[in-house]
């Protein structure tokens, strides 16, 4: 059990102090966001742990439940740049990545960066754009760079994509393929707010919307160092084995189960969860909490009797914890 030699991502382990600092930053952001967003506390935490774990987030729900608002609130809580892309059926890849324009004065082509060049990119209704455009964004997410006219350009750091997608109007959308869904660390569902929450929300946004006055409470450096701390949170062998058992369970009980990349993603998210709770080590509880949102979109079931979410729940209720 004292197998401390191989934390998931090398380097020295995070100290209690590091974790405390990171936790403070995250807590500040959460409080800030909650000035705007009523309810959805768990989802806010999930987004932040994903941010800490260097993951991208996909928000999926019916229109009008505040997906965009949530993403904006989080983006604005940091000092960094924030861009928003509204995906439409006629959006071109260059509209996302940027384009080379001939400058008459200098008689040279100069690069005009697209909206993807920002610290936080909100991709609204990503499933409405055609696959070619989608994949431009997805490449940026995966590679942390974009290639325009054969030239690669590095994206600013930190770089996080929060995408939303609609679950209505299915017939006029381009469903993201499994392989690309996999790029998102988490897929979250917001759902409708509770009755009193909804009332309170209406209260708040009548008149001037509070989002306009939301101030940033953390610098990009804060986020960067919190991410570093997160990457160095201890993950003992027994936890890694637990993750492996969970992944394998899903593979046995679904047509397509969780890939090793999914296992890595859940560990990174769990590290973020540990930081959020002020721990310098991951416990199985972290894994369980994160698996609920990290695993389902990576699982495909063949029958109607079961859903990916049910498979994950089944795994959490069957796989032994050590």
């Amino acid at each position: 059990m004292t197998d401390t030699d191989t934390p998931v991502s090398g380097r020295q382990e995070s100290t209690v102090e590091d974790v405390d600092d990171a936790q403070t930053v995250v807590t500040r952001v959460v409080d800030n966001v909650e000035q705007v967003i009523v309810g959805h506390h768990n989802e806010i935490e999930h987004i932040l742990t994903a941010l800490l774990g260097k993951g991208h987030i996909l928000l999926e729900d019916v229109p009008g439940v505040g997906k965009t608002m949530l993403a904006r609130a989080i983006a604005q809580s940091f000092e960094g740049s924030f861009k928003r892309v509204q995906f439409t059926p006629d959006l071109l890849p260059s509209d996302v990545t940027g384009v080379n324009i001939f400058n008459q004065k200098t008689e040279e082509f100069e690069f005009r960066p697209g909206p993807v060049f920002a610290n936080v990119v909100l991709g609204d209704e990503i499933n409405r754009a055609p696959p070619k455009t989608q994949s431009a964004l997805l490449e940026a997410m995966e590679e942390q760079q974009v290639t325009v006219d054969g030239e690669s350009r590095t994206l600013p750091q930190p770089f996080t994509v929060i995408a939303t997608q609609n679950t209505v109007e299915r017939d006029r959308t381009y469903e993201l393929p499994m392989a690309e869904l996999d790029r998102f660390m988490k897929k979250l569902h917001l759902g409708y707010p509770e009755t009193d929450e909804e009332t309170e929300m209406l209260d708040r946004i009548v008149g001037e919307h509070p989002i306009e006055e939301l101030e940033s409470v953390a610098t990009l450096e804060d986020l960067q160092s919190a991410r570093e701390t997160t990457a160095n949170v201890t993950v003992e062998r027994s936890v890694r084995e637990y993750v492996t058992r969970l992944s394998q369970f899903t593979r046995r009980h679904a047509e397509l189960g969780v890939s090793p990349r999914g296992g890595l993603a859940v560990l990174q998210a769990a590290q973020g969860r540990a930081v959020l709770e002020g721990r310098e080590y991951v416990i199985p509880d972290d894994v369980q909490t994160e698996a609920e949102v990290v695993f389902p979109h990576r699982i495909r079931t063949s029958t109607d009797e079961t859903t990916p979410r049910a498979v994950v729940e089944n795994a959490l209720e069957s796989v032994r914890v050590e």
Partner: peptide, 9 residues
């Protein structure tokens, strides 16, 4: 025990 087991310290 959690510390012993999962933090290794």
């Amino acid at each position: 025990r959690e510390r012993a087991r999962y933090a290794g310290q």
